[in-house]
Simulated assay, not measured.
Amino acid sequence: MKLIYIANARIPTEKAHGIQIMKTCEALVGQGVDLELWLPRRNNPDFEEKDIFEFYEVKKRFRVRKFFCLDMIGKLNFLPGVGFYIQSKTFANSIKQELRRGDYKDAIFYSRDTYPLVPVIQAKYRYFYEIHTTKINPGKLLLKVFEKSRGVVAINGNLAKQLEKYLLEDKIIVAHDGVDMEKFGVLITKQKARQALGMPGNKKIVLYMGHLYDWKGVHTLAHAAEYLDDNATVYIIGGTDKDTSKFKEFLEKFRLKKIKLLGRVSPSEVPLYLASADVFVLPNSAKKDISKYYTSPLKLFEYMASRRPVIASKIPSLLDVLDKSTAIFFTPDDPLDLSKKIKAVLAEEVPTERIVSNAFQEVQKYSWQARAKKILSFLNSKLNR
């Protein structure tokens, strides 16, 4: 199969979608797919010298092509959304020109973005759409993408149920995000990890890794830290430079002093930091639909593979993967309840050994390879009709 994955994304990037796209492509190549990744040529000074395959530790290489776009994202903040619109439309126009130049009648297109699919639809090429979030009332473009697609891949079950309002059930498949089991499934002792990172050996470490958006719930974790005993330290790792600065202001405003804010680390360092922890927290908020219903956090699967107890918000998006046999739940957006659950785990008042073992067994089916097999089987079933 010749598959062209179009991603309107700046890659390499500090954001999780870069990992998701690159690992999905690598896993599809591993299944024998002849794959090309088409990207916009965007400005990213922090990553200009980075090799895309080395940065994401991708072993199975594939062709990456970059196309012109007018990158106005972040330059027209006084006109919300306009910068993204200009960038997306000019990237889509470059795709249109390429489709006119080449012969792609035998190719299958795949994308998680709507604008780049417009020229694909116009050229009447076959494509599949991967959806990561939606609205109660989708716009005309998204509805058209649904209608003309051969099938839609949803990243969780809640999204799939929402799609059934617009698509036949057999045109939808659920393929959660994944994890690199070769990288995260290797057991590293806490002692070795902490020695390598220069972290204290005599403290209990509570760890969150991910972005600092409001809906991620990190503000709840920061408030919860104030209720913890002095022998526990909360480490927050990740976030863009801009979001990290903003989060520091939040910590100073509320005088929250029990947080160690480390900023972002390279993908190669992530397993070591996870191994240093006593417990992981996934504190997603229930106040935004993207968090409550539609997210499929990469860190969830990395947490499960790293064999430490996971304390998670009790919200539908996380319950799509977790249950009481694989995680400890707390009331979303409730710092006091979160602190109680953290204390109980650290004091060994909760029998976490079986929970950790169950989570590790459960995460085996969420490897990138398993995801690629599921997607490829779905694609073939729809193409052979």
Rank of each mutant, 00 (worst) to 15 (best):
M1F: 08
L3V: 15
R10H: 15
T13D: 14
H17D: 15
I21S: 10
I21K: 05
T24F: 08
C25K: 14
L28I: 06
Q31C: 08
E48T: 11
I52N: 01
F53L: 03
K59Q: 02
R61H: 10
M72G: 11
G74L: 10
K75H: 10
P80M: 04
G83W: 02
F84N: 05
Y85N: 08
I86G: 05
I86F: 02
I95S: 00
K96G: 00
Q97C: 12
Q97M: 14
L99R: 08
G102C: 14
G102I: 13
G102T: 12
Y104H: 07
F109M: 06
Y110A: 10
R112Q: 06
D113E: 12
P116T: 02
P119I: 00
A123K: 07
K124E: 00
Y127P: 12
Y129C: 14
K135C: 12
K135P: 15
K135G: 13
G139Y: 08
K140Y: 06
K144Y: 01
S149D: 07
S149Q: 03
V153D: 02
V153A: 07
G157V: 09
A160R: 12
A160S: 12
Q162T: 14
L163V: 14
L167E: 13
L168W: 15
E169H: 13
E169R: 15
I172G: 08
H176W: 02
D177G: 09
V179L: 05
D180M: 03
K183F: 10
G185Y: 14
I188W: 11
Q195N: 10
M199N: 14
M199C: 12
N202M: 04
V206Q: 04
V206T: 07
V206R: 09
K216W: 05
L221N: 01
H223D: 03
A224W: 01
E226S: 01
L228H: 09
D229V: 09
N231Y: 13
I236E: 09
D243E: 09
T244V: 08
S245N: 09
L251K: 13
K253T: 13
K260H: 15
P267N: 03
L272C: 03
S276E: 05
D278S: 11
V279I: 03
F280K: 06
L282F: 05
L282A: 05
A286S: 13
K288C: 02
K288N: 06
K288W: 12
S291N: 10
Y294T: 09
T295F: 00
K299Q: 03
F301K: 08
E302T: 09
Y303A: 01
A305K: 01
I311T: 02
A312S: 03
A312E: 02
K314L: 07
L319A: 09
K324E: 04
F329W: 11
D333L: 06
D337Q: 15
L338N: 01
L338C: 06
L338D: 05
K340T: 04
K340C: 05
K341H: 06
K341S: 01
E349T: 08
P351F: 05
T352V: 11
E353F: 11
F360K: 10
Q361G: 06
E362P: 07
K365E: 02
W368F: 06
A370W: 06
R371Q: 09
K373A: 14
I375H: 03
F378P: 12
R385K: 09
R385H: 15
